[in-house]
Design a protein around this nucleic acid. Structure first.
Lengths: 332, 332
DNA sequence: CATGGCCTTGACAACGTTGTCATCGGACAC
DNA sequence: GTGTCCGATGACAACGTTGTCAAGGCCATG
C-alpha cells in the first residue's frame, strides 16, 4: 500500500479509500491509484484489514464434520458453503473422524483463527470445553448430534424414532431375527439408533436376540465383515438393520457376495446416492441432508447477524423410503 | 494480551514469550502468566501473529474444486486436508460448479486472504489471470485439468487414453453403435474424453455415428434424460460410454427404468462408491483418486517448503475395471 | 471581501502481535 | 572488590490496514 501510494503520489490513506471504494476521492486520483495498484500487483490484505477494522471478525466460518469425503458430511459442507458465499464468508473445513482429541485441537485452532462462527458435528461426548467460547460470543451450531455441557443451537435427526420406524417396518412383515449394526456406542447417534431398534421390539412386547445386536462397527469394511459373520452362524438373521449408510453398503456387499441379496431383508439408516440403483433397491430411513444443511446454515447466519435468543433445538423427522430391500419377507 | 500482562504483573512481551513457549522466562513468571491467561480466557490471535511474523503467511491452503459434494472432489479435499494437517495448515475450500467467474472471484478472495498455496480444479478455459500471483510466488497446483496460460504444477489423468481404452473395450466385443455422453465441450476433461471416444473408432478405421455423440450433458438428471432419448430412437445404440460418474449414474437409472440394464452395455469414466453393487456391476475407467490426491498434496507441500524447480506435470494413467456392465454383447 | 460550508486529502494512532535491542541484577572468576 | 557475563525482562517499533480528526482549497453567499 505504501508503494502504491508513493507511485500514485498520494497518501496511504487515500489508497485505502480507493481500495475500499469509499466516496470522496477525486476521480482523477482514484484512477491514478488504481493504475498504480495494478502496475504493482497490489493485493489487499484481508487479515490486516480485519485486524484493524473489526471486532476480531475474520469472514471465516469453521465447519468441523466427521469426514468430508463421506456423502453426508460432504453434502452438509456444500450447503454451508453456499450460505457462506452469500455473506462473503469463506469456509474452513476439517474432518474429525470421531476422534475427540482432534475435535478439541481443531476447535482451538479455529478459535485462534478467529472464525466468526462454527458448525460442529462433535466427536466428543461432552463439549464443556466450548462453553467459554460460547460465553465469549462465538456462535456455534451443532449438527447431527446435540450439544452436551454447553448451550448452543442444534439441528439433529430423530434417530431414535427413525430407527424404530425402520425396524418396525421389518417386524411388520414378520421378521423377528433382525440384526442391528451400529457404530461405537459412545457415538450419540449410533446409540440412539440402537435404542430405537430395541424400542421397536418392545412396542410389540418382544425382545430382540442380544446376539444379533452388533455395535462398534466402524466403516463399510467392518460392516461387510460383521454381516458375513452373522450369516455364517447356525441361526442367522432373516433381516438386517444397518445404522449408517456405510454399514448398509458393507451389508449389501456381503449379501451380494453370497448371493443372498434377495433372501435377506435390509433397511439402512441414512440415504445415499445410488441407493435406488443397487439390487434390490435399498429401503432406507432417510434424513433430508439438504434440509438439515439449510437449517444449520440459517441458524448460523441468524447468529452471525446478531440473533441472541436462547438456543434453538431443531429436530428433523426422518422418513421411510420403501424401495425393495426392506420388503423381502422372512422364509415361509 | 495487555490484560493478561497487567493481571500477571509483567510486560506484554513476556506474555508473548509464554504464549509462544519461548525459553528465557523464569518458571514462576511463566506460571503466573499462564494462570492469568486462563482466568481471562485469553485466546491467541493467529492473524495478528502472522501479520507481524511472517512474510505474509497465513497457514491457510486454498482448495478450489468443482463441487465438494461430488465424490471425486470430496475425496480430493480429504487428501489435501490430511496433508495440510501434518503441516499445521488449515483448508479453505470452495466449489466452482464450472463457473469461470466464480473461479476468478474465489481465487481473488483467497489471494486476499493470503493463502500460502492453492489447489485448483479450474473451470476457466485459461488461467492467465493467475500468472501475476504465480510470479509473485504463490504455489499453485492444478488438479484434474491442466493449466493454460500460466506455468504451474499439475496432476491430471490421461483422459484421452482412458476414454479410448473404455470405448475400445466395447468395440472389441463387437459394438459399433456406441453412444458417447460428455459434459460441456468447453470443459477440458470432457473434450478429451470425447476425443478419446472418436480415436478408438478411428484406430479401427471406422467412424462413430455422429448422432450418437451427445455433449453438453450436465449432471445425473440430464444424463438420464439423454439416455432415455437415445433409447427412444428408431435406431438406438447397443452400448453407452458415459464420460463422467454422474452421467453413468444417470444412464444406469434410465436403463433400469426401462429394464434394459442387461441388454445395453455401459462403460463409465471415473469410478465411484457402490459402482460394484449396482446391477449389473458397472465397468469403469478408474482414475485413482487417492493417488491423485496424494500426488497433488505432495507437490503443493514441496512448493510450500521452498521447492522452486520448473513446474511438474504429472499424468496418472487410468485403468479399466471390468465388472459386468461393459461386457454385455451386442444383439445376436 | 469576509464567512461558512463542502469536498478532498493526509497525519496519526491503533488493531494484536513479535523481533530487536537495551537494561538490570546477580553469579562467578580473579 | 572489580569486572564480566548471562539470564530475565521490558520499551519500542513494525507488520498492513483503517478510523478519527484536522487542514487546505474551492465555491457560493451576503
Amino acid at each position: 500500500m505504501r508503494d502504491v501510494a508513493a507511485l500514485a503520489g498520494v497518501s496511504i490513506k487515500t489508497v485505502s479509500r480507493v481500495v475500499n471504494n469509499e466516496a470522496g476521492v477525486a476521480e482523477g486520483v482514484r484512477i491514478r491509484v488504481q493504475e498504480a495498484a495494478a502496475r504493482l500487483d497490489y493485493r489487499h490484505n484481508l487479515a490486516a484489514s480485519n485486524l484493524r477494522r473489526g471486532r476480531g471478525l475474520s469472514g471465516l466460518i469453521g465447519a468441523l464434520l466427521q469426514d468430508v469425503s463421506n456423502s453426508f458430511s460432504a453434502a452438509l459442507l456444500r450447503s454451508l458453503e453456499d450460505a457462506a458465499r452469500d455473506r462473503g464468508s469463506a469456509i474452513l473445513s476439517a474432518s474429525l473422524d470421531e476422534e475427540p482429541e482432534r475435535e478439541r485441537a481443531l476447535v482451538h485452532d479455529l478459535v485462534t483463527r478467529r472464525v466468526d462462527g462454527l458448525v460442529l458435528m462433535p466427536s466428543t461426548d461432552r463439549q464443556d470445553y466450548l462453553s467459554s467460547e460460547v460465553r465469549a460470543g462465538l456462535p456455534v451450531v451443532f449438527v447431527d448430534r446435540e450439544p452436551r455441557g454447553v448451550a448452543a443451537d442444534s439441528v439433529t435427526v430423530e434417530n431414535f424414532e427413525g430407527a424404530r420406524m425402520g425396524v418396525e417396518h421389518l417386524l411388520a412383515q414378520g421378521h423377528r431375527r433382525i440384526a442391528c449394526l451400529t457404530d461405537l456406542d459412545e457415538i450419540y447417534t449410533a446409540r440412539r439408533r440402537r435404542e430405537g431398534y430395541v424400542a421397536a421390539f418392545e412396542a410389540r412386547g418382544i425382545r430382540p436376540d442380544p446376539a444379533l445386536t452388533i455395535s462398534g462397527v466402524r466403516g463399510a469394511g467392518a460392516g461387510e465383515a460383521a454381516v458375513a459373520d452373522l450369516l455364517d452362524r447356525a441361526d442367522p438373521p432373516t433381516a438386517l438393520f444397518a445404522g449408517r449408510n456405510d454399514l448398509a453398503q458393507g451389508a449389501i456387499r456381503a449379501l451380494q457376495r453370497r448371493g443372498q441379496s434377495d433372501a435377506i431383508a435390509l433397511v439402512g439408516f441414512d440415504d445415499f446416492p445410488l441407493a435406488d440403483l443397487v439390487s434390490p433397491p435399498l429401503t432406507v430411513v432417510r434424513q433430508d441432508v439438504a434440509r438439515i444443511g439449510r437449517l444449520t446454515a440459517d441458524l448460523l447466519v441468524a447468529r452471525l447477524d446478531g440473533d441472541d435468543s436462547p438456543p434453538h433445538r431443531i429436530v428433523v423427522e426422518p422418513t421411510l423410503v420403501v424401495r425393495g430391500s426392506g420388503e423381502i419377507p422372512p422364509p415361509h
